[in-house]
Design a protein around this nucleic acid. Sequence first.
DNA 1: CGAAAGTGTGGAACCGTTTCCACAGCAGGC
DNA 2: GCCTGCTGTGGAAACGGTTCCACACTTTCG
Lengths: 339, 339
Amino acid sequence: MSALSDVARLAQVSKATASRALSGNGYVSELTRNRVVSAAATIGYVVSSNASSLVTGRTRNVGVVIPHINRWYFGEVLEGIESALIAAGYDLTLYRLSEDETERRRLFEYFLMRKRVDAVIAVSIELTPHEVRLLRSLDKPIVGIGGPGDGIAALSIDDVAAAALVTNHLISLGHTRIMHIGGSRQKEMDFRVHTQRQAGFRKAMEAAGLPCGTDAFRAADVSMQGGFAAALAALADPRSRPTAIVAGSDEVAIGTIVAARQLGIQVPSQLSVIGIDGHELSAMFGLTTLAQHPNAQGKMAVDLVMDELLQRPGAPAPTWHAYPVSLEVRDSTTAPSVE
Amino acid sequence: MSALSDVARLAQVSKATASRALSGNGYVSELTRNRVVSAAATIGYVVSSNASSLVTGRTRNVGVVIPHINRWYFGEVLEGIESALIAAGYDLTLYRLSEDETERRRLFEYFLMRKRVDAVIAVSIELTPHEVRLLRSLDKPIVGIGGPGDGIAALSIDDVAAAALVTNHLISLGHTRIMHIGGSRQKEMDFRVHTQRQAGFRKAMEAAGLPCGTDAFRAADVSMQGGFAAALAALADPRSRPTAIVAGSDEVAIGTIVAARQLGIQVPSQLSVIGIDGHELSAMFGLTTLAQHPNAQGKMAVDLVMDELLQRPGAPAPTWHAYPVSLEVRDSTTAPSVE
DNA sequence: CGAAAGTGTGGAACCGTTTCCACAGCAGGC
DNA sequence: GCCTGCTGTGGAAACGGTTCCACACTTTCG
């Protein structure tokens, strides 16, 4: 492997000049720069990022902590982050946060601390106070996506408002027997999102004076299979069946639609279903949904990180950036049929 | 940030001894080791991986190159790789290979070369000879998943055999008008997989003496939407409609099932559908499929990498490891109804 | 016309580790 | 009692860059 000194020798300049010529910092005449660059090209020189970041203290690498990879929302966020980072010339080191407590501790105390990353993006993760302290002690930018951060900069949709909005959509269509199928605190690591959506649902129901007891909510795995299973159970009895369902995510909503079809229930004439997320499959299933744009959120998180990385104006305000949403009305919602 | 020298000072030993105590290489008495370890703990010392790998030449970091993140197969592979790497104490740097030619070149010539990774795992990527040469010149382990590697160690199912197997399943049920909906060379970056599945389909059809002309294949995006759209078109005319469909992937198969339902075609009584992959949703849709286990394949790829990393017995045999599959028969396939 | 400012270059220190080498003590074998 | 081999430790030389500082040569400007 060729080193900078080889390039310098070939170009007949000092290491210092060679470094300046290649990195673009400091004065180098056009002539020598060309000589150095072509020398580097001929011997196939590439900087050692280790050596480089050892002295500069910057790694051009961002750590991403994410609970799942293979769920639409998370995959989409990850793709957005990846594209934006590559475009900015950064690498992305991926850490999946498992449910296992000791592995989680190991990740934080060991992996993230090894001066390997310049910044951290945490996706849908509720950090413990200890973890926040640990991360802040690194004095590196941290940005959270999904779920308001506890003292860290964050970016997400307003989940309470989102759930209230979709619930109100059903209410305004005339539905009164509305049920919510969504994630629960027990079932989800990234629970903040789903408890908040549940809160939004309740808020809208109560504001409309509609019943919102324990049978108005059913916990589900936040996945198509979870929605499918929960909906099968919830819709089994025609007498207690709601006329509309607010799903905690589009995946749950799609599972619900598939379950309804299997039970012979017509959507939307017998059952309206509304989701939250703007899943790529929502169009295919004709699902009315409140679209957020996880891919763009990933990119925006990277922008926030880059801002902090470039400027670092003392304390980076740990503000919460609300991401806009848009209601996409399709064929899964309509007014309830007269009874 | 505390450095090794701080630990050494606190423990009243030399840097050399401190290093040995913490890394576990070389002789250190039990007594001093304890002193060093507790000194490190009190000041919260963590090694600088940059400094460390600068001198050792190893980074404990593996690069993963993958074309998509948000498709089931790829997400699953990625999760498998991630878990296995973390367990082995390695970091994972993620590179998504886009279709864009210049970005692809940039990735290879710039990102992957910066001595940042100890090994590379390439998922479903057909490398150009130039790229293979580039990677091999790094003298680092490379393992491919999906698609036989051109001179690099690889791991995948036998896609030709897999497609032939599912096709034969339909043939043995008595189907004769069988159609294949799958990925095409034009539409897919990771095309080797899908051209091979197509080849397997043709092979089985021809072996059975069944017609296999141009109308026996329809190209689709390898996704649910793609399968949905292609199936809607393919099934529109009842007169030319096949009695069974071999889908290029489970996602295509599910899209096909949804399309059939929308067209009022009963599955399986009027149309059998079979997929390949063992998608997590296949059970929910009652899909008969040939299951592979991408998660386990990811783990296996990591094992291969670790083997090479630990031993490096000269030239690491660029062998192809065939991954086993299993047919999971569900409710989407049956004998054709008599006409 | 002399001082100040801007440009171009090289020497050398430094980043934080690992590891080679030297050295010292101590056991065992002849 | 001396040589050999093992254990334990410290000094110092890498690893491959970046950057501070010093120095030299041009301009510019009052």
